[in-house]
Design a binder for these strands. Structure first.
Ligand SMILES: [Mn+2]
Ligand SMILES: [Mn+2]
Ligand SMILES: [Zn+2]
Ligand SMILES: [Zn+2]
Lengths: 126, 126
DNA sequence: CCTCTTATTGCAACTAGGTTGCAAATATAG
DNA sequence: CTATATTTGCAACCTAGTTGCAATAAGAGG
């Protein structure tokens, strides 16, 4: 499941994602593991998870990097090209399962489409 | 046309956008005006232009802030909700005139959709 | 034109996310 | 149990962007 060396830190970071399908910003993850590992280690472990196809990454509304679990990816193929949602009130981020068709643009070759929807989440709508 | 005080710096920054419809990153703009004004000034002028509805802003692929001219906006209403394209090879950014319909998401209120298309621009396709 | 008020600017210091080089620690193959 | 390669901590660094404050300069009104 977890390739390369299965260190204490690797296990701790993975557990967070294993427990739920929530997306986490690097800032949260560094904060969360403060005391048990260095921030550099968090960054490096996340990098490795991404290369291995365990996590995918995207940018939230202020350019912050977010990570979420992949479901059918490997180091060879990332198929997590889905839109993401971020709540303008609580800041929470979610992976969306809806399909977005990539628009065609004349004279351009489009390889990827990043879509970030902004608004209010279910909890903040009340 | 240009509200507030029309300083030397304000004129210089505006000229860049007035000349063409190119999008510019703040990094480029600061570099471009190095020698004639401080970077803080560039940031503040861009902020003002945005508030006044002259420029709109969005994030490029590395979370860098980009600015481009608005065409029918005012301080009251920004209607520049269009997708943007960034070339993976030369880094160039373009505003796209295509329409993207904002997807609906159950139990969420979507206010805005940010879309960044990545690929190769016309010049880099050769 | 001159004067006064207020918006704008420069500067230096700061914040925050993210990266790097290197020596020390540790997982794991054999 | 070793030997080796990977991973980690640390401290220093980088870059985009922000802030407080004193100095400067638009431009409105006289
Ligand atoms: Mn996702
Ligand atoms: Mn645009
Ligand atoms: Zn919310
Ligand atoms: Zn290009």
């Amino acid at each position: 499941m977890i390739s390369s060396r299965q260190t204490q830190s690797v296990r701790l970071v993975w557990e967070v994602f294993d427990r739920s399908d929530t997306a986490y910003s690097v800032v949260e993850l560094v904060q969360m593991h403060k005391g048990s590992m260095n921030k550099t280690t968090v960054y490096r472990i996340l990098d490795r998870f991404e290369k291995e196809g365990k996590l995918h990454t995207f940018l939230g509304k202020n350019g912050l990097k977010w990570y979420a679990k992949c479901h059918n990816c490997s180091s060879k193929k990332h198929i997590d090209i889905h839109p993401h949602f971020q709540c303008n009130e609580c800041g929470k981020v979610e992976c969306l399962t809806i399909d977005v068709k990539i628009p065609k643009v004349a004279k351009h070759h489009i390889e990827q489409a990043n879509m970030l929807l902004l608004g209010q989440c279910d909890e903040c709508l009340i």
